[in-house]
Structure formats: structure tokens, C-alpha cells
């Protein structure tokens, strides 16, 4: 077997996600050349980056075989808490660091419940998300200055470095870091192993609980940071600001080629998923399609994407069957002598 081919085959779903994104982009550009303008591309990158932040932790959690439904509330938490602290004079970089740390702590609670208390991920993250929501509703009332987004968040979200938006660069940095984490560190390997089979991982000496805990923690941190940036872009924050990102974060992971059961996928695939979703939503108006159509198209993209990656998995299954799944002792033992 050719190692280059193996490498490509291993990443075929990621490659397919980028191909899909490129095709959509090409279609939109052919239809209306303004789609490929610098300002539009910048806009697309900024919008995609919000999905990207929300889906960063989601990718890690799903890769390890979990699911994080608290993402939208953590995004709201990022914006509102920072805004709240800023009015109390604790904004700036320190504020961001603290709020992201707090988000990580909330993620820690998710991870603890899932890994140690063995609460199903859907339930644990749903409950924690609800508690965060309740907390935000309570501080929302106290926040007298309105929910103005802090300056620092605004500048991250809207500044540019040359022609490139700062958010996009930050996102790129996150993507590189996540890519390195997943492919070049022991933790990354353990995340994949845990998601592929926690039994095998445990028997191979992986501390599955700790791995899960870390993924939820990172998810909490990334979503909170995403929320800060998003609030900066919007200019103000409100409690439902993260709502669309529950669906978007999971959809980006799935369209990016990861398996919802864990163990397969990459963050670079999710990046492609986030770009695809963004391009789709931006191009539909060109074809006089509205939000309703967009939702329908999203659904179809998810189902078709999964069907395609299942075809690949089936091919694997076939060859696995060739590996002999039943255990009869070898008959030849008798005769070979």
C-alpha cells in the first residue's frame, strides 16, 4: 500500500468537505461575480469563524465520543459576563482571560458529570447549559448599563490586519493549534482512541475519564471565547445570542466528515464544515431563496454528507469482515503436519 494514498484515504472526508465548499463557492461566483470580492470573502470568514469557535470544542468532544449541548449558553456567557465585568471595571485582556477560564470551569463540570458520574452527555450538558442560562438571566437584570459589548471584544471582532480580519487570524491560530493537538500530541491520540472505542482505549492504558474531562473543558473555553468575539461583532450582547450555534456547531462537525459516534474526524474538516455552512447561507439569497429554503438545504446537506461518509465506512466494514470475525479454531491444524 502506498503511504501517500493511505494518508489521503484517511483524510478523504476532510478533503471532500473542502471540495464541497469550493464547489459551492464556485457556483456562487459564476452566478454573481461579486461573491468572490475581497469584502465578501472577509465577511464570510468572519461569520464562519463564529461557527468555528463554537465548533472547536464540539469537535473535540464529539471526537472523544461525547456531545456538548451547553455551547450556545457558554457563548452567551462569554459576552454577557465580560460585559458585566467590564462595567465593574474588570474588562480588557484580563477580563477575557478570566471569562474564558470561567467557561473552562463550566466545561469541567460537564466533563465531571459525564466521565465520573456517568451521566449521558446529552443530559449533563443540557442541564449545565440550563443552569448557565438561568445564571445569565439573573445577571442580565442587574446589568444597568445595557449590554454593551466591551471595546476589546469589538476590536477583536472588527479590526483588520492588512486585508485580513483579526478574527480570521485568531481562528486560523486556533485551527492550527487544534490540528497540532489532535495529530501531534499524546492527548490527541487519546481523544481519538477514546472516541473510537473507550473499551479498547481503557485496556490500552488510556485514562478515558481524564480525556473526556479535558475535551469538555476545552469546549467550554472555546465556546466562551467565541461568545466574546461574537458579542463584539454584534456590538451588544443578549441571552439568545448563541442560540443558532448549537445547530451550527454540530452541523459543522458532521459536514466536516467527523463521525457523531466519535473517533473519526479532524478540526480542519470542521473548518471546512463551518465555511460550507456560511457559504451556503450567503449564496442562497443570490438564488432568491430565503431562510426557510436555507434550513431545508442545511438538512439535506447533513443527510447527504453523512450518507456519503457512511458509504466509505461500509467499504471498510466489508474488508473488516474479510478479517474473519468468528472464532473457530483453524481447521488446518489437523492436516498441516
Amino acid at each position: 500500500m502506498n503511504p501517500v494514498l493511505d494518508y489521503l484515504r484517511e483524510r478523504r472526508t476532510t478533503i471532500a468537505a473542502y471540495a464541497l465548499c469550493a464547489v459551492l463557492f464556485a457556483i456562487a461566483t459564476i452566478h454573481s461575480s461579486g461573491f468572490a470580492s475581497a469584502s465578501n470573502i472577509r465577511q464570510l470568514l468572519v461569520f464562519a469563524s463564529f461557527i468555528g469557535f463554537a465548533a472547536l470544542g464540539q469537535t473535540l468532544v464529539i471526537l472523544a465520543g461525547g456531545l456538548d449541548l451547553s455551547v450556545p449558553w457558554l457563548m452567551a456567557f462569554g459576552g454577557l459576563q465580560l460585559s458585566n465585568w467590564t462595567t465593574h471595571g474588570m474588562g480588557g485582556v484580563l477580563g477575557i482571560v478570566l471569562v474564558v477560564a470561567a467557561g473552562a470551569a463550566i466545561g469541567l463540570a460537564n466533563g465531571y458529570g459525564v466521565a465520573w458520574l456517568r451521566v449521558p452527555p446529552i443530559v449533563m450538558t443540557l442541564a449545565v447549559g440550563g443552569l448557565v442560562q438561568a445564571y445569565l438571566m439573573s445577571i442580565g437584570q442587574l446589568n444597568s448599563s445595557g449590554n454593551q459589548a466591551p471595546r476589546i471584544a469589538e476590536s477583536i471582532a472588527t479590526d483588520r490586519l492588512g486585508p485580513i480580519p483579526v478574527v480570521a487570524l485568531v481562528w486560523l491560530g486556533f485551527a492550527v493549534a487544534a490540528g497540532v493537538l489532535l495529530s501531534r500530541t499524546a492527548l490527541g491520540r487519546r481523544i481519538y482512541a477514546t472516541g473510537a472505542s473507550d473499551t479498547v482505549a481503557t485496556l490500552s492504558g488510556v485514562n478515558v475519564k481524564r480525556v473526556r474531562l479535558v475535551t469538555y473543558m476545552l469546549s467550554g473555553a472555546a465556546a466562551t471565547f467565541g461568545g466574546v468575539v461574537l458579542s463584539g461583532y454584534v456590538g451588544s450582547t443578549y441571552i439568545d445570542i448563541g442560540a443558532p450555534y448549537l445547530f451550527a456547531s454540530i452541523a459543522a462537525v458532521i459536514v466536516g466528515g467527523a463521525s457523531i459516534l466519535g473517533g473519526r474526524g479532524t478540526y480542519w474538516g470542521t473548518v471546512a464544515g463551518a465555511l460550507t455552512l456560511t457559504v451556503l447561507s450567503a449564496m442562497l439569497p443570490l438564488f432568491h431563496l430565503d431562510t426557510a429554503d436555507l434550513e431545508i438545504v442545511y438538512g439535506i446537506v447533513i443527510l447527504v454528507g453523512v450518507a456519503l461518509s457512511r458509504l466509505g465506512a461500509n467499504a471498510l466494514q466489508m474488508s473488516r469482515r474479510g478479517g474473519g470475525e468468528e472464532k473457530p479454531a483453524d481447521p488446518e491444524v489437523v492436516d498441516v503436519a
Binding site: D6, E10, A186, R189, R190, Y192, A193, A196, S197, T199, V200, A201, L203, S204, G205, V206, G263, R264, A313, L316, R320, E325
Partner: peptide, 22 residues
């Protein structure tokens, strides 16, 4: 080996080294 021994969807290389990552 299918359920307890191997990560079937992972490469042979990463399976072999899984026990010695440290």
C-alpha cells in the same frame, strides 16, 4: 480483538503505539 483489542478505524501505526504514547 475487534471489540477490546483494536481501534479498527485507526491505522496500524497508531494502534501499535497507543500503549506507549508516554
Amino acid at each position: 480483538r475487534q471489540r477490546e483489542g483494536l481501534l479498527l478505524t485507526h491505522t496500524v501505526r497508531s494502534n501499535v503505539t497507543l500503549g506507549a504514547l508516554r
